[in-house]
Design a protein around this nucleic acid. Structure first.
Lengths: 226, 226
DNA sequence: CGCGTTTTTGAACCGTATCAATACGTGTGG
DNA sequence: CCACACGTATTGATACGGTTCAAAAACGCG
């Protein structure tokens, strides 16, 4: 779509920052920048993963989208690669990625990307670093989800939006109750219930999609204990 | 411990197979082979992860070992690296690894390992490949655990031992009921119950730790549906 | 303003954890 | 060789949390 110049891009990943000017020229030739509106699908599960997707700006949900077991795995914020494990571990995407806000994404040629891994150790190392951190995050996520009960998991999700996404205690949820439940591994009904319960206890204030955290310490405790 | 010669090692990883003779000499100088008996700890959670662990032979469990939330994440079979994400994503191990059988492990110097990533693109690429596949496995694992109920998860575990570990329909469980429950995210009581239930339905035969799968198709269905 | 969607709330039902008691198996010491 | 003790496994009864179903309320949009 839009013509862009990788060399001058301000949103380079840690890995891309290791590339020489010449390499960046190579990257650019197989690079397509695309914009997405909320709800639009960035990566489609079961489609061939022929490109590396780099989320330059915006917010998106990573979700497994089988008809029978739709599940939001996590919410990702730019800048980040999305779907690298599918790119390398499997020929088809193992999950979908859908924009929650306006998103700007660069689709990079997989062959060129691989070439950099082979030829630029610094680049490869940074990719490994990003993948490692991601896997550890997933690891803890998974553990939490299986050991806490609903209240704790919803508290987790709220804290996640606070700390990792918006970095301030008042924000507007980018997702519906349905999706919040889905993210926390429960139903929309329970997501609703827990939210109002936390509201009634004075731990958060909630009105529609607007959330304000009133008692962070207590919320943290709920997230940890149960 | 034992003196070994990496060059002549028959258990090389895909990544290590890309190394030149000279590089293998380098690997060897910072390599310690150690043997573990069942129950012995190979990697200890919260210890500094100063070495890359390569499981050359044997079976081990990867588990989160906090006093309050002990949880078996997965069972791994040689040959495989264990703990790479901790090596690169964090200075301390994010989980423990404990031997279930006699295990032979090579501890490699992390600095040398990093050097190979920087200098040998083929090596780096193979590491990325292994990490990608691992992450996808975890991904599906995590998804399954959160969407199935106990019967399905135990069925999963049994099928896992059949297909991924022993590759034959009759085998001896390498873990106790307690750990089986822990692996499937439930209690020892429920693990027991489900096992005898499957036995009574003629789907598996079970006697102590000896398991035989009698009706694979049905077991598969249970694993998928519920 | 009306219609469809999303959210909230209540009640009944189901699955699983928990508790409690019993059985089994192995190893120890008399 | 038996008696005992300890860890592991089994089985049943109960309680709690969460899903599901149903219905009302609030919201957003044309």
């Amino acid at each position: 779509m839009g013509k862009i110049i990788c060399k001058q891009c301000d949103f380079k990943s840690a890995a891309a920052r290791t590339l020489s000017e010449m390499e960046l020229d190579g990257l650019e030739s197989g690079c397509a920048k695309t914009n997405f509106k909320p709800g639009e699908i960035i990566i489609k599960q079961n489609a061939l993963s022929t490109n590396v997707a780099y989320l330059k700006s915006g917010l998106a949900k990573v979700h497994f989208s089988d008809p029978m077991k739709e599940r939001i795995m996590r919410i990702v914020k730019a800048p980040t690669y999305v779907g690298l494990p599918s790119n390398f571990g499997n020929k088809v995407n193992q999950f979908s990625v859908t924009a929650l806000e306006n998103c700007s994404v660069c689709f990079l040629d997989l062959a060129a990307f691989k070439k950099f891994i082979f030829e630029n150790g610094d680049f490869a190392y940074n990719i490994i670093l990003e993948m490692s951190k991601n896997e550890l995050k997933n690891f803890h996520n998974c553990l939490n989800n299986s050991q806490k009960q609903t209240t704790g998991r919803i508290a987790d999700a709220v804290l996640f939006f606070y700390k990792e996404i918006y970095e301030r205690p008042a924000f507007t949820l980018p997702i519906s109750r349905h999706d919040l439940g889905n993210l926390a591994g429960t139903t929309r009904e329970n997501a609703s219930r827990v939210l109002t319960q936390l509201h009634n206890e004075g731990i958060i204030r909630i009105s529609g999609k607007k959330v304000a955290i009133l008692n962070e310490k207590l919320l943290q405790q709920i997230s940890e204990k149960g």
